[in-house]
Design a protein around this nucleic acid. Sequence first.
DNA 1: TTTATTGTATATTGTATATGTACAATAGGC
DNA 2: GCCTATTGTACATATACAATATACAATAAA
Lengths: 134, 134
Amino acid sequence: MRSSRTLRIDLASGQPVYEQIVSGLRAFLVSGEFKSGEQLPTVRQLAIDLGIHHNTVAEAYRVLAEEGWLDLRRRRGAMVLDRRDPKATPEAKQDFRKHLEELIAKAITNGVPRSAIADRMADMAKKLGQGGTR
Amino acid sequence: MRSSRTLRIDLASGQPVYEQIVSGLRAFLVSGEFKSGEQLPTVRQLAIDLGIHHNTVAEAYRVLAEEGWLDLRRRRGAMVLDRRDPKATPEAKQDFRKHLEELIAKAITNGVPRSAIADRMADMAKKLGQGGTR
DNA sequence: TTTATTGTATATTGTATATGTACAATAGGC
DNA sequence: GCCTATTGTACATATACAATATACAATAAA
């Protein structure tokens, strides 16, 4: 699957474009839609697909490389690494909890029914338990 | 409960301070820690408590007022309104789903165990089902 | 060895954030 | 009713960040 086919960038969202790319690709990487050994599009190719500048894509790739997801080299492009999960800091857990609560609060504020929120979270929890999301 | 006692602002987090205030207060509002009719601290008071400028707090209050959470008037301060949830747009649901996946991906990247993520989501789902979070 | 391709570095420009300062509205005291 | 202190608001400014334009450096492949 080409990343550009499913990766959507919203220039009007307020969130920086490079962060949107990081978040979107990271979700694909975690879910296994990009497997280790695979080649990601070049910064220029993805930039063209998204209609942005290649330096913006490069910035996103750099973040993912620092997280250990990508091996990034000139002339070779970006390759997905076989990454091991690090051990979590206490902050990471607190952060997740806090941001989850804030995400839910925002959804409720936007009118998403509590039942729909609960259902989706139960879904995701189940997937995680099954190892479906790795 | 004073908002400033539990609201934490991280100047180094990268996220704009006024957004941190919005997210934090919104979570309190949704959870009922601030009930309708209650008075929030004045923009100047909260600014002092957080060690920032009052205009930054004012910006955050304005966002919450536009969302229907606050009645904001000169000389009267900010009062929590009895807010009804609007009906969700299809985008709101998609947004929630997408951001939830991205939040989970980030937590996993940071090393939070999948089991811990699943447990916390199950917790929150349960609370929502019970009406514990309103 | 040459060349095309790829990521990287630097400068520039526009936008957003946080602040400083002044203003406008108004509840409460007299 | 008028004054005054308190509160949110408006606007200008400094600074930082994001996205781009352009040039450069490394290197696989011919």
